[in-house]
């Protein structure tokens, strides 16, 4: 089943001579349970594509369907995008993006609370998630008391908490050593399998490419023929 269907996304930053075309006519589909990699040199538009798919920074034009429902029509929002974000999308970014004054447990609960989900069951779910991510002992610590990898796992727990239709991750392993980076990637893959979540990951780390089902490579704001393919990597 198609979770994401993006058609002809374009985005230009700046104007006139300074204009940078970050996305030009990019189309992509990601199925549920699929783990897709976004490769490409710096400045090729990977993050721009991810934020467009995540409805964070809208493209100038193009359309987007999420779980069959249109959410962007010619670059314009259809419906309440904040609602779509909080209910259906999970985000993980390069640097830890946790709220510094909340504990691990609270950071994860927050994703549920902004969806009006509170109470015992929610707490139980949060604890189960954190344990699943091997954070059972660190639940009541704030981000500054956690290692980079632990923070990243909390962010993943938060992204998973609402059982979103898709998870978007921008270089989630950049701050981690290769072993931990690999662990995170395998975790995302497991989640995709078990929960039928579509996962899109921007990565520079070619050593983990075997984890992905599909590989998209970008250059100058458009997709190019991948220099490596998932099959050969694995």
């Amino acid at each position: 089943m198609e979770t994401i269907r993006a058609v002809s996304l374009t985005k230009t930053y700046g104007q006139g001579e300074l204009a940078v075309t970050a996305l030009s006519d990019v189309s992509i589909t990601v199925d549920s349970g699929e783990v897709a990699a976004l490769l490409g040199p710096s400045g090729s538009g990977k993050s721009t594509l991810l934020t467009a798919l995540g409805l964070i920074s809208l493209p100038d034009s193009g359309s987007l369907w999420l779980e069959g429902r249109q959410v962007l029509r010619d670059g314009r929002p259809v419906g309440d995008l904040a609602k779509v974000r909080r209910e259906r999308i999970g985000f993980v970014f390069q640097k830890s993006n946790l709220i510094p004054f909340l504990t691990a447990r609270e950071n994860v609960s927050l994703a549920l609370e902004i969806n009006d989900r509170k109470g015992r069951e929610v707490q139980a779910r949060v604890e189960a998630l954190l344990r699943y991510l091997d954070l059972g002992e660190r639940m009541d610590h704030t981000p500054d008391e956690l290692s980079g990898g632990q923070q990243q796992r909390v962010a993943i727990a938060r992204a998973l908490a609402t059982s979103p239709a898709m998870i978007l991750a921008d270089e989630p392993t950049a701050a981690l050593d290769s072993v931990r980076g690999r662990n995170v990637m395998e975790l995302l893959r497991r989640v995709a399998r078990e929960q039928r979540t579509a996962v899109v990951v921007v990565t520079h780390d070619h050593r983990t490419l075997d984890v992905f089902d599909t590989i998209h490579e970008m250059a100058d704001g458009r997709f190019v023929e991948p220099s490596v393919d998932a099959a050969s990597a694995s």
């Binding site: 995008l81 609602k83 974000r85 909080r86 993006n97 994703a111 902004i114």
Partner: peptide, 10 residues
């Protein structure tokens, strides 16, 4: 933090 809350769709 506010930016993050918005990103999460709060």
């Amino acid at each position: 933090e506010i930016s993050l809350l918005k990103l999460m769709g709060a």
